[in-house]
C-alpha cells in the first residue's frame, strides 16, 4: 500500500512541479493565455482541462491493448473530443456566464497538446488508475501556471481579485493607475515568460 502511495506522490510531484506541462514540457500554452484575463475564467478552464485530461487518459489507457495502431491518433482524438463536447454542454447548462466568456476556448481543449501529449506519453503504457492520477497531476500543473498568470493580470490590470476590487481607493488617489497592458496580449506573454524564468531558476530547466 505504501508503495502505491509513494508511486502516486511521485506522479503528482512530476506533473505539478518538476515536469510541469507548461513550464517544462512547453505544452498547452495555446488557450492558456487567452483565458487568464480574469481568475474566474482561468479557474473554470483549469478545472475543465484537468478533468478532461484525467478521464480521457483513463479511458484511453483502459483501451490501450485494443486500439489498432493505424487509427491510434484518431481514436484518441475521438475520446478527447467527446469528453470536451460533454464538458462544453455541461458548462453551457450550469455555468452559462462563464461559458460565454470562455467562448471557443473550451472547444480548443481538444487540440490542447497536454491532453493528447499525456495520452501518447503515459496512458498508452500505464494502467488506467495511474493514468487518471497522471492526468490530474498534469492538469494541476497547468492550473498552477494559469491561475498564477491570471492572478497577476487581474491584480495589476484591473485592481481586482476574483472580481472584487482589492486596491484601496487611497492608492488610486495618489496617482496609481491600473496597468492596462496586463489585460492585453503582450501582458500575458511577459508574465508567463517571467514566471517560467522564475520557475526554471528554482528547479532547473530542461537541457
Amino acid at each position: 500500500m505504501s508503495n502505491e502511495t509513494t508511486q502516486y506522490k511521485e506522479i503528482l510531484f512530476k506533473g505539478i512541479w518538476r515536469e510541469n506541462p507548461v513550464a517544462y514540457q512547453v505544452l498547452g500554452i495555446c488557450s492558456a493565455l487567452a483565458v487568464t484575463v480574469k481568475m474566474s475564467t482561468a479557474i473554470v478552464m483549469s478545472l475543465a482541462l484537468t478533468l478532461v485530461t484525467a478521464f480521457s487518459s483513463m479511458i484511453i489507457s483502459s483501451m490501450r491493448n485494443k486500439i489498432p495502431s493505424n487509427i491510434r491518433i484518431i481514436a484518441e482524438l475521438a475520446v478527447i473530443a467527446s469528453m470536451v463536447i460533454v464538458t462544453d454542454e455541461i458548462l453551457q447548462a450550469f455555468f452559462y456566464d462563464i461559458s460565454k466568456q470562455l467562448s471557443i476556448f473550451v472547444g480548443l481543449i481538444i487540440t490542447n497538446c497536454i491532453v493528447l501529449g499525456r495520452a501518447e506519453a503515459f496512458a498508452l503504457a500505464n494502467n488506467p488508475l495511474d493514468s487518471f492520477v497522471d492526468g490530474i497531476a498534469n492538469g494541476l500543473g497547468y492550473s498552477l501556471v494559469l491561475i498564477a498568470v491570471a492572478f497577476i493580470r487581474e491584480l495589476l490590470g484591473a485592481g481586482e481579485f476574483l472580481g472584487f476590487p482589492v486596491i484601496p481607493a487611497f492608492i488610486y488617489d495618489a496617482g496609481y493607475q491600473n496597468m492596462g497592458l496586463m489585460l492585453l496580449a503582450p501582458g500575458a506573454f511577459f508574465i508567463i515568460g517571467l514566471l517560467v524564468w522564475l520557475k526554471n531558476s528554482i528547479s532547473g530547466s530542461k537541457k
Partner: peptide, 22 residues
C-alpha cells in the same frame, strides 16, 4: 489488435459509444 476485423469492430464500437454520450 491490428487485424482488419479488429480495426472495423473497434472503430464502430467507439463511434457508437461516443455518439451516444455526446
Amino acid at each position: 489488435k491490428n487485424s482488419k476485423k479488429n480495426v472495423i469492430q473497434f472503430a464502430l464500437m467507439l463511434s457508437v459509444i461516443c455518439s451516444l454520450l455526446i
